[in-house]
C-alpha cells in the first residue's frame, strides 16, 4: 500500500475537494453565480464538507448556531474584503500566513464583540469562536477566490458562502434543538409532555444529524437522477473543459 505522493494529492482525497470552488486559470463567472454558488449549489458544509467542526460542535441549539453562523459570516466577509484589497501587496510566499493573520484579527474582534453583547452565548460557544481561525472554509475562500478577484466579486462570494454557512448551521441547529429539546430558539414547540431525544444535543447526535441530512440529499439526488438522466454537473464548467 502506498501513501499519497504529495500534499496536493492528499488534499484531492479530501471530501468535496474536487468541487471546492477552485478557480481554473482564465475562467470567468457571473456576479450572480459568485453569490449563489456558495449559498446552495456548493454549500460549504452540506456539499463541500468544510467547516464541519463548528457545524457539529455548537449546533445543539438554534441560538448558538445562529451566533456562530453570524460570527463566521463576519470574519469571512471582513477577511475577503481585506485580502482582496491588499492582494497585490501580499508576496506569494507568505500569502497563507498573511491570510491567517488577517483572519485571526477579525476573529479576535468577533470574540470580544460577542463577549460584550451576548455573554451567555459567548460562554456556550467557548473555544469554538477562537477556532473560527482554522475554519478551512474561510482560508479556502481567500486562497481560491478573494486573492484573485476584484473587491466587489470577493465580497459577493464571501456573502454567498457566509449565507450558505448560516443556512447549514441553522438547519442543523433547528433539527437538533427541535428533537433534542422540543423547542426552537428556546420556545417550546411540542408542549411539556414531549419526551426529548437527548442524543440529539450530544456529540453523536451532531454526526448523525449531518449524516441523515446527507443521506436525504443522496436520496433526493438519486430520485432526480432517475427522473432526468442528466450529465453530472461539474462546477465552473469543468465538464466543458473535459470535453475539449
Amino acid at each position: 500500500m502506498t501513501g499519497p505522493e504529495s500534499a496536493t494529492e492528499l488534499v484531492r482525497h479530501a471530501p468535496g475537494a474536487h468541487e471546492a470552488g477552485v478557480l481554473l486559470p482564465g475562467q470567468t463567472t457571473t456576479p450572480g453565480h459568485d453569490f449563489l454558488r456558495g449559498v446552495w449549489e456548493e454549500n460549504p458544509v452540506l456539499v463541500q464538507m468544510l467547516g464541519l467542526c463548528p457545524a457539529l460542535a455548537v449546533t445543539n441549539t438554534v441560538a448558538n448556531s445562529l451566533a456562530m453562523g453570524l460570527a463566521t459570516f463576519f470574519v469571512l466577509t471582513g477577511s475577503s474584503l481585506l485580502v482582496s484589497i491588499f492582494k497585490n501587496l501580499i508576496p506569494k510566499e507568505v500569502r497563507i500566513a498573511s491570510f491567517i493573520l488577517i483572519i485571526a484579527t477579525f476573529v479576535t474582534i468577533a470574540d470580544l464583540t460577542l463577549a460584550a453583547v451576548v455573554p451567555n452565548i459567548h460562554k456556550a460557544l467557548g473555544a469554538f469562536i477562537a477556532l473560527i481561525v482554522v475554519n478551512c472554509m474561510i482560508l479556502g475562500r481567500q486562497e481560491a477566490f478573494a486573492s484573485k478577484r476584484p473587491v466587489g466579486r470577493a465580497l459577493l462570494d464571501a456573502f454567498g458562502t457566509g449565507v450558505g454557512f448560516i443556512i447549514a448551521m441553522v438547519m442543523m441547529g433547528s433539527i437538533r434543538e427541535l428533537l433534542g429539546n422540543g423547542s426552537l430558539l428556546g420556545y417550546s414547540v411540542f408542549g411539556p409532555s414531549f419526551e426529548p431525544w437527548i442524543i440529539m444535543i450530544l456529540p453523536p447526535g451532531g454526526f448523525l444529524t449531518l449524516g441523515i441530512i446527507l443521506l436525504a440529499f443522496g436520496w433526493w439526488r438519486g430520485r432526480k437522477a432517475a427522473e432526468v438522466p442528466m450529465v453530472r454537473r461539474w462546477p465552473h464548467g469543468v465538464a466543458s473543459r473535459r470535453a475539449a
Binding site: P15, M49, F207, L208, L214, L215, G218, W219
Partner: peptide
C-alpha cells in the same frame, strides 16, 4: 447509492461516537 460518500462516513462517525 444514497449512502455512498460522506453520508455513510458521518453515520459511522456517529456510531463510533455513541
Amino acid at each position: 447509492a444514497l449512502a455512498k460518500g460522506m453520508g455513510l462516513v458521518l453515520i459511522i462517525a456517529g456510531s463510533l461516537s455513541l
